[in-house]
Design a protein around this nucleic acid. Structure first.
Lengths: 232, 232
DNA sequence: TAGTGGTCTAGACCACACA
DNA sequence: GTGTGGTCTAGACCACTAT
C-alpha cells in the first residue's frame, strides 16, 4: 500500500473511531512528515484527499481540524441496465417494443419541456434478466438535441447505453416513487395489474437543453436501489 | 487559479463537451507538461483527481482514456421527516405507537446483526402531515450502542431526530424499493391493503457498530425521492 | 510577524503492461 | 525491452491568517 494511503487510512480511522472528535486539531504536516519519515508532499496528498472526503478542514496558520458533521447526502449508484442484470449472474437481453419519430404533443410537456410540434423520438423498450422481464422503459428523445438518434435502430445496444456514448455528458434529475402497475406495464413485466412497482424517472440535460426523459419501471419486489451515506 | 485546476478544468471541459468522447485517449503526462510548461507532478495531480471523479481511466503503458459511463452517481438529500412535511406547508405531527425494550430475536438479524439475546429498543411510530398519515416508521435501536435510548420517551421529537442529535458521526446504507402495503401498514397509513408503497430501509453505523435499523413506509402516490445526477 | 497550508519543481525509482 | 503511470523526494516560494 502506498504511503499516502496509509497515512490517509490512519487518520481516517482515528476520526471515524471517535479518537479524534469533530473540532480536534490533527498534527501539522511537518509533524506527520517526522512520524512517517516522508516528505511533506506525501503527507499533503493524504490530507488533501481527506478534505475532498469532507472529513477534515484546513486553514493556513490555524492548522487542520476534524470537520463537524454538516448535511449528509446519500450517494446512489445507478447502473447501466446491462451491468445491473449481469451483476445478478443472469444473461441480459432487451427488446425494442416500439420506435416512433413524431411531433411533440401537449401531454409530453410533463416529460420534456419542448416547443409544440418539436420532433421527438418515442421509444418503448423491455429489458430482461434471463427470460424474466426486469425493467420496462419508456423514453422520449429530443431530436433537436440529438438529431442522429432519428436514424438509430438501437440494435447494438439499448437507447440508454447508446445515448451515454453519443451525447456529451450531462446532468440529470431523478425522481423515485412507488406506483401500482397499469395494465400495459403489468403485461410487459408479467406481473399482476396493480402490483407495486419501483419507478425511476430521469430527465437528462446538456448545456441547458433537455436531451431525453425516461421512465424505468421495475417490479417492486425484484429491484432495490442502494444508496450510501456520504459525509458532506 | 492553480495550474493543476486549470489543467483539470480544461480536460474536463473537453470531455463534457463531447470533444473527447468515451474511449478517446487523452495526451500523455509528458505531452501535457510541455503544453502547460509545468512539471509532471502538476499534470499528475490533475489527472489523478479526474480519475477520482470517474471521468478518466488510466493504465500503465496504455495511457489515459475517457471513461465509458457505466454508473451514475445520483446524490440524494435525506430529509428529516419534520422538515419534509413542513416543506409541504403542512403541520407536522408524530405518534409513538409502541415502545418496547426487549431481547433480540432470530428474525431481527435481517435488520441488525446482533448477538442472540442482545438488548434492543423496538419503536413503531407514525408521522402525519396535517391529519393525513405521511409515513409509517418501524425502528430497532441497538441498546448496546446507544444505552441512553432505554430511558427515552421520544416526547420531544421522533426517534430519528433524537438519534441524529445523540450519535454524531454515522454512516448509513439505504435500500429503496416498492412494496405492496400489508394490512397493518395499510391501516396505519389509511390506504387500501396492497397499495404500492415506497419503502426506505436504513441501517446506521457508528465506528463499526450498528446503531439502528429503520423502515420508513410512504404511500407511493404521495411521496417522491429526488436525486441529482453526478458523473460516474 | 511568524507559522501554516497551497502549490510547484526537477528530478528519481519502480510496477505494470504491451511489444 | 520499452513506455506508461504511480509514487516519492527535498527542496522552494507564495498566500493566508492568527496573534
Amino acid at each position: 500500500m502506498p504511503l499516502h494511503l496509509r497515512i490517509l487510512n490512519d487518520v481516517e480511522k482515528r476520526i471515524l473511531s471517535g479518537e479524534w472528535p469533530p473540532g480536534h486539531r490533527i498534527p501539522f504536516e511537518h509533524e506527520l512528515t517526522v512520524q512517517y519519515g516522508c516528505s511533506r508532499m506525501t503527507v499533503n496528498k493524504a490530507l488533501t484527499d481527506l478534505v475532498k472526503k469532507g472529513l477534515i478542514e484546513r486553514r493556513r496558520k490555524a492548522g487542520t481540524h476534524v470537520s463537524f458533521p454538516h448535511v449528509q447526502f446519500a450517494v446512489m449508484e445507478i447502473h447501466d441496465l446491462r451491468r445491473e442484470v449481469q451483476a445478478l449472474g443472469l444473461p441480459y437481453r432487451y427488446e425494442i417494443v416500439s420506435l416512433k419519430p413524431r411531433r411533440a404533443r401537449r401531454e409530453d410537456n410533463a416529460r420534456l419541456d419542448l416547443a409544440a410540434g418539436a420532433s421527438v423520438l418515442e421509444i418503448v423498450c423491455d429489458h430482461f434478466a434471463g427470460d424474466r422481464p426486469f425493467c420496462h422503459e419508456e423514453r422520449l428523445i429530443n431530436l433537436a438535441a440529438v438529431p442522429e438518434a432519428a436514424k438509430e435502430t438501437f440494435e447494438e445496444g439499448p437507447p440508454g447505453t447508446w445515448l451515454l456514448g453519443k451525447v456529451p455528458w450531462s446532468s440529470a434529475e431523478h425522481r423515485i416513487r412507488a406506483e401500482a402497475a397499469k395494465a400495459k406495464i403489468a403485461s410487459a413485466l408479467s406481473i399482476p395489474t396493480g402490483s407495486a412497482c419501483l419507478v425511476v424517472e430521469r430527465t437528462t440535460h446538456y448545456s441547458g437543453l433537455q436531451i431525453t426523459h425516461v421512465i424505468f419501471t421495475y417490479p417492486g419486489d425484484r429491484h432495490e436501489l442502494v444508496a450510501q451515506f456520504a459525509h458532506g
